[in-house]
């Protein structure tokens, strides 16, 4: 059987890849995709904890489901915002979206 720590290591690596994507990408859609990677990493560790610690209790799976729901809502609202910004500013490059910069 695969040890729990392997799953957690994969999840941690996936999360760090997401962190790098959020910090380093210039395109707003790419940043959103990196956030999806991070949410997936969290889900992976939640399900791994569920399987290895309390498989008889459904809490771990339920939490993963709620994370999925929030991810869907976040994607819908975030992409709508990006499309709206693109319509007004003709760019989705976060370097150029600096309306609030003093």
């Amino acid at each position: 059987m695969v040890p729990l720590s392997w799953y957690l290591l994969v999840a941690a690596a996936l999360f760090c890849i997401g962190v790098y994507g959020v910090l380093a990408r210039r395109n707003a859609i790419a940043i959103l995709m990196a956030i999806e990677l991070m949410l997936n990493a969290v889900n992976l560790s939640l399900v791994a904890f569920w399987r290895y610690l309390h498989p008889a209790v459904t809490t771990g799976q339920a939490f993963a489901l709620f994370v999925l729901v929030v991810a869907a809502a976040e994607a819908a609202a975030g992409l709508a915002l990006i499309i709206s910004i693109y319509r007004n500013r003709e760019t989705v490059d976060v370097e150029n979206i600096d309306l609030l910069k003093g």
Partner: peptide, 22 residues
């Protein structure tokens, strides 16, 4: 699919991507 839609709708960026990283 939603993300693909957004990529298609903001295609000005896709045509001339420039450096992907800041």
């Amino acid at each position: 699919i939603l993300i693909i839609f957004a990529v298609m709708l903001t295609r000005g960026m896709a045509r001339n991507p420039g450096p992907p990283l800041n």
